[in-house]
Amino acid sequence: MTNSIMLQEEDVIHAAKLAGITLTPEFRPGILARLQELREGVLRFSESVAEDAIPAVRFSAE
């Protein structure tokens, strides 16, 4: 399960470098925890999504 791989602080520092920003040091633990939790949640949800589901492209439920 790729979504169970735990992020480390150096991972978010590296990701910030890729994004071209510098992280505020005191925010790093919160960012790390939030990214980990949300990625896991999104991927867990996606396991129940049908293979042929497409991303939402119209945002009202017509």
């Binding site: 978010v12 990701a15 910030a16 994004a19 920003i21 992280l23 505020t24 925010f27 919160g30 960012i31 939030r34 990214l35 949300l38 990625r39 999104v42 991927l43 949800f45 996606s46 999504v49 589901a53 497409i54 991303p55 939402a56 492209v57």
Partner: peptide, 18 residues
């Protein structure tokens, strides 16, 4: 800062969940 670090695939997966 958190939002800048999101992978495009995570965002699109979220839109798929949506």
């Amino acid at each position: 800062e958190t939002g800048q670090l999101y992978l495009a695939t995570t965002y699109i997966t979220a839109q798929r969940n949506r």
